[in-house]
Amino acid sequence: MTTPRGPNPTSGTPGPLDVDVRPLLRAGDDPFQAIMEATSELAAGQSLRLIAPFRPVPLLSVMANRGFAASESALGDGDWEVLFSPVAAEPEEGLALGSSPAAIFWGEPAMELDLSNLDPPEPMVRILEALEELRPGEVLFALLAREPVFLFRELAKRQHEWAGNFDSAGIVYRLLVRHGGGARGHG
């Protein structure tokens, strides 16, 4: 069902990975897992070309959350082709290591914390405690005095997503954390 294409001769980036879900749907299977598996196999910068017998509207927001922009075209007979291209394969300059490229698509923060007057590890404690209060998908915004490097490790373990950077003056660190929905009760 998935067909890798040869590398793009001009850029060296692999060509789009083709995923045709029409046979799966004809067989009565749910293609979602197959699409997600194909997405996780993409090389850095590689796009995914999806062919479906309808316009896959809900998938557009799922892929947007994973950092893909969509360009779609009707193929006729009700079939659609959607090309999902990675918005940013690498975090932007200045964004913290591990920052999610999808952060620009996150909603308004459900909670804002000013932790700039606390010394490590207190900001980490407050953020992890606050995340326990939030629901999956909700976003927390925090101001800190420095990059919370030890927090990132703990966020990754608990499967939350984050994006952070310093303000232009380099004084205040701004951090967005999106509740990943998993990993409650173990660490």
């Binding site: 749910d30 293609p31 479906a52 809900p58 799922v62 959350n65 994973r66 990943g180 990993a183």
Partner: peptide, 25 residues
Amino acid sequence: DERSLSHDDPPRTQPHIRHARSPRC
């Protein structure tokens, strides 16, 4: 166990996607 996380990729799974609806819905 602290070490393993620092040099491997974090879990690739992004749990919020698991709860997303099928594109067919």
